[in-house]
Design a protein around this nucleic acid. Structure first.
Lengths: 239, 239
DNA sequence: TAGTGGTCTAGACCACAAG
DNA sequence: TTGTGGTCTAGACCACTAA
C-alpha cells in the first residue's frame, strides 16, 4: 500500500490539535483576546467537541488559556512570579481563621508531636494584583509558642501567632513543591471550583531542638510561578 | 416543590466519585495493588466510563494512581523527593547531547546575549531508582566559558562544560517552579507519552558581572516532589 | 433570550500486554 | 486471543453571562 511505515503510531488528534493551537495562539493572538467558541473550533478542525476540549485542557494546564463559563476562552496573561522563600517584605495576606487544637497526622509526625500535643493553626490567603493566588496554613506547637494570650479575639490571636513566629530562632528551612488539586476548602479560598491544579508547597522551619513549625501552602498552578532566591527568572520554555 | 434550596448546585458526579475513590483507596488498597477495570468501576458506580475516567484523571494528577495501558490502574508509590538546590553530592545523570550555537530567544534574553552570541548547551537526564525522573538543559555563554576544547567528542565536551560550570564564580542562584506539559522531546527522554504534566524548574546562576548560566529542567509531576534546602519534608496533605 | 463553557452519556475502535 | 487503558464520536442537557 501507499502507507509509509515510518509513522507506525500516529500522534493522537488532540495532541496534533494542541500543536496547531499553540502556533496559532503565539502568532495571531495576544493576552486577553477571545478564541472562537468550542463548537466552531471543533467544526473548523473537523473533530468532535470532546477532542477539541482535550487539546484546550492541555493548554489551560500550561497556563496559556483561561476558560470562563458563559464568556469564552481567553489568552491567559503570563504567570505571576510568587516569591516564596523570603521573609516577605511587602506582601498582602488575608487572615482566614486561627485555631488551637490537635494537628493533622502528617503535620504532627513532622513536628514530632504525640497525640496530646496541641498546635496553633493560622490560615490565610495570599493576594496579588487583587486576586487570591494562594492559601497557607501555619502550624506551630503550643510548647514552641506558649505565650499567646488566650483572651484575644480570633483575628488578634492570629496576628499574635504570626508575630511570634517571626521572632522564633529559625536555624534552617526546607521546602518541597509538588502538584496537587484543590479540595473544597482551598478551592473556596481561591475562589475557584474544586479540582483545579495547584502547586503544593510544604515548608519546615527548624531550630536547634528540631522542627519548630510547619506550613503548607497551595498556589494556583494556572496563574502562579513560584520563585526562590532573587527575583523571578524570565525564561519560559526551551527545547 | 419538595426540593430544598440548600444544595442549589450539586457537585459534579466526577468530583463526588473522586471523593469516594480517595476514601476507598486510602482505606482498602496499598501501593502497587490493582483497581478493578474502568468498565466495571463505571458500572458499579452507575456512571458512564468517561465520567469515571474524569475522576481517575484527577487522582492520577495528584499522584495517587498510575494507569498502564494493557495492565490496569495501580495505586501509586509515594512521590520521590528530588533535591534540587544543592550541588548534588551523589546524583545519577545520563548525558544526552552537547551542542554549541545560538540560544533560544527566552534564554538569550535572560543571559543578556545578542543574536550573534553562542552558548554551550548540555542536555542530560536525571535518573533515580533506575528510572528517568527529569531532564535538564544547561546553557552557558561561550564568552563565560571560552576554554572548552573544540576537538573533543560530544560526550567529552559535555563533561568538560559541566566540570567548568562547577568551577564558575557563582555568587547567587534563583529558581522558579511552574506547571507545564512535556513536549515530544522531553517526553521521549522521560520515556512517557507527550502531554504528561511536568514541574518546570528554571535556574539562573549569577556572578558579579551578571547572569553566568541558565538551566531549565522538567520533572515528572506524577512521581516527583522537588525539595529545596535540607531533606524532603514528609508532610503530605493538611486541610 | 442567546451564546458560552461544563458535564454526562452510550457507544465504537485502537494500542498494548499477557497468557 | 483476551482484557486493559487510550482515543474519538455525536449528541444531550445544565449553569453561567451578557444583551
Amino acid at each position: 500500500m501507499g502507507t509509509t511505515a515510518t509513522e507506525a503510531v500516529p500522534e493522537p488528534k488532540y495532541w496534533q490539535l494542541r500543536t496547531v493551537l499553540v502556533r496559532t495562539i503565539d502568532q495571531e493572538f495576544s493576552t486577553g483576546e477571545v478564541l472562537p467558541n468550542e463548537r466552531d473550533l471543533a467544526a473548523r478542525f473537523g473533530v468532535a467537541r470532546a477532542t477539541l476540549r482535550q487539546a484546550l485542557d492541555q493548554l489551560e494546564l500550561e497556563g496559556r488559556l483561561v476558560r470562563r463559563r458563559g464568556i469564552g476562552t481567553l489568552i491567559a496573561a503570563p504567570r505571576m512570579g510568587i516569591p516564596v522563600a523570603e521573609a516577605s517584605s511587602r506582601d498582602t495576606w488575608r487572615i482566614v481563621d486561627c485555631g488551637l487544637g490537635p494537628a493533622p497526622a502528617a503535620v504532627a509526625a513532622t513536628l514530632g508531636l504525640d497525640a496530646t500535643d496541641e498546635v496553633h493553626t493560622v490560615r490565610r490567603v495570599r493576594m496579588m494584583a487583587g486576586q487570591a493566588v494562594g492559601t497557607e496554613t501555619l502550624f506551630v506547637p503550643v510548647r514552641v509558642m506558649p505565650h499567646v494570650p488566650g483572651f484575644l479575639a480570633e483575628s488578634s490571636r492570629a496576628r499574635a501567632v504570626l508575630k511570634q513566629f517571626q521572632a522564633l530562632p529559625i536555624e534552617g528551612e526546607s521546602r518541597a513543591v509538588e502538584l496537587g488539586v484543590a479540595e473544597e476548602e482551598q478551592a473556596r479560598l481561591l475562589e475557584r471550583p474544586p479540582g483545579i491544579p495547584v502547586l503544593v508547597l510544604t515548608a519546615r522551619y527548624a531550630g536547634e531542638s528540631g522542627t519548630l513549625a510547619v506550613a503548607t501552602s497551595t498556589y494556583r498552578a494556572d496563574t502562579c510561578k513560584l520563585t526562590f532566591g532573587d527575583t523571578g527568572v524570565e525564561v519560559r520554555a526551551a527545547s
